[in-house]
């Protein structure tokens, strides 16, 4: 794959799947995998995240975005279990806005580090001008 790919981790399966649909509209050429929920319930699951990483892993790199608390623990564990995937980064960014920017940047063919920086910069974004 010529583009950085994305993995979306949420406690809710619907949030992850819905976000994937939203992103596919702006970046149809970017590999995106949703890893939401835990066996059909609210939660996250390291094995599911690991599968998601492996399904879209790209030599160009993969960015993992997550929503809350234990999603990070499971994302880190998934990364360890996936083993040898050097070019995977977990981004410290809000899930929806961060993933949106990441999809745009990845769609433009930007390298991994730039995609991560762009989505982490979203934390400083002002959504309503005062």
């Amino acid at each position: 794959m010529n583009h950085v790919s994305l993995v979306l981790v949420s406690h809710s399966e619907e949030i992850a799947e819905g976000l994937k649909k939203l992103l596919e509209q702006v970046a149809p050429n970017v590999g995106i995998a949703a890893a939401g929920g835990n066996n059909g319930e609210i939660g996250t699951n390291a094995l599911r995240i690991q599968e998601a990483i492996e399904s879209v892993y790209s030599e160009k790199g993969t960015v993992v975005l997550f929503d809350l608390g234990s999603a990070l623990l499971n994302a880190e564990l998934a990364l360890e279990m996936a083993g040898g995937k050097e070019r995977v980064r977990i981004a410290d960014a809000p899930l929806v806005e961060g993933a949106y920017i990441a999809a745009v940047e990845a769609g433009l063919g930007k390298p991994l580090e730039e995609v991560v920086q762009a989505c982490e910069a979203v934390k400083q974004m002002v959504k309503i001008e005062k």
């Binding site: 835990n38 996250t44 699951n45 390291a46 094995l47 608390g69 234990s70 499971n74 564990l77």
Partner: peptide, 18 residues
Amino acid sequence: AMTLIAKVGGASGPLYGT
């Protein structure tokens, strides 16, 4: 470990799994 990681939601799955 793998059963806990696969089945337990929340932070306790990855923590006890680890």
